[in-house]
Design a protein around this nucleic acid. Sequence first.
DNA 1: TTGGATGCAAACATTTTGCATTAGC
DNA 2: GCTAATGCAAAATGTTTGCATCCAA
Lengths: 136, 136
Amino acid sequence: MSDLLERLRERGWRMTSQRRVVAEVLDGDHVHYTADEVHARAALRLPEISRATVYNTLGELVALGEVTEVCTDGRARRYDPNAHRPHQHLVCSGCGTIRDVHPLGDPLADLPAAGRFGFTVSGVEVTYRGLCPACA
Amino acid sequence: MSDLLERLRERGWRMTSQRRVVAEVLDGDHVHYTADEVHARAALRLPEISRATVYNTLGELVALGEVTEVCTDGRARRYDPNAHRPHQHLVCSGCGTIRDVHPLGDPLADLPAAGRFGFTVSGVEVTYRGLCPACA
DNA sequence: TTGGATGCAAACATTTTGCATTAGC
DNA sequence: GCTAATGCAAAATGTTTGCATCCAA
């Protein structure tokens, strides 16, 4: 399923072989690669692709709202192509595996105006921590 | 203030001038410094303190459970001395300011067993995004 | 006294930048 | 052809490591 590529083409995104490969690597569910992992996978199909291009492309996809950045461990940022459907993350403290989850309720509603310090709150990220079946 | 220093002494933590200064820098509310900010502030009182010592000390404080790491922007990790009272974070997308907040409800209860992929869930981090009064 | 803590410098990992070349539209 | 995208290499940023020295208990 190449929803991502199709959406990008419709939006008039200038298509190059590098950008196509990056978009293909990011296509799928529960995908949360680091920039370096994206580069490695892209290089399997397009050996000459450079890291700078991967970083540029990921940055653009984030700016376009087609991919979101997630920061689960203070190390490398990860890129999540599941940007159209709101969801949260479940991270294994053992092996680092990340799964998309859909909790009930609305975390935004849980933060009363009185506790917002005058901020205009626009979004919320939730990261659940635990151990996956294999690590438990 | 200085609950932190006192707790550390009680726990038999070997005290040095460097560790004391780091603990003093971290003492307070809504404190979320990067390792480098801790180093800069510590160096005002103890110019010869090294970055390595600051990193070592922060790592130990985290291991002791007296400080928690927060990762709000994919760049440097930040260190939060408010580890005894559970709370979440409100981050300004403009200037990066971070405030501790205390939402209602329990996010853990919002993730039904059926959506946990067999994980043993032990904790949750919530980051609210918005604009502070000055940036709005 | 002695094991653990420190400082230094170098290595390492991740991300950004400048600029000449290339290629999509 | 014009403009934007690419590749390369260097730099910027953040963190870890090895090892000789120093110091709190």
